[in-house]
Amino acid sequence: MRNYSIYACAVTIRIVVCFAILAFTYKFDFPPFMILIIALLNDGTIMTLSVDRVLPSMTPDSWDLAEIFSYAVAYGLYLTASTVALVVIIMETTFFQDNFGVSLAESPVTSNDEQLHMVVYLQVAIISQALIFVTRSHS
Rank of each mutant, 00 (worst) to 15 (best):
M1V: 09
M1I: 13
M1A: 10
N3G: 06
N3D: 11
Y4E: 08
Y4T: 13
Y7E: 01
Y7D: 00
Y7A: 09
C9H: 05
V11K: 01
R14V: 00
I15E: 05
V16W: 15
V16Y: 07
V17N: 01
A20N: 06
L22A: 15
T25H: 06
F28C: 14
P32L: 04
M34Y: 05
A39G: 13
L41R: 00
G44F: 15
G44M: 13
G44K: 03
T45C: 07
I46S: 07
M47F: 07
M47Y: 04
L49C: 02
S50A: 14
D52Q: 08
D52S: 12
L55E: 09
P60F: 03
D61L: 09
S62H: 12
W63H: 02
D64Q: 07
L65M: 06
I68M: 02
Y71I: 00
A74W: 09
G76P: 09
G76E: 13
L77V: 10
Y78L: 13
A81S: 10
V87E: 01
V87L: 02
V87N: 00
E92V: 00
T93A: 10
F95W: 11
F96V: 12
Q97I: 02
N99H: 02
V102E: 04
V102A: 05
V102C: 00
S111N: 12
N112M: 06
E114S: 14
Q115W: 02
H117T: 13
H117N: 14
H117F: 13
V120D: 07
Y121W: 08
I126R: 09
I126V: 14
L131Y: 08
I132P: 00
V134D: 10
T135E: 10
S137R: 11
S137V: 13
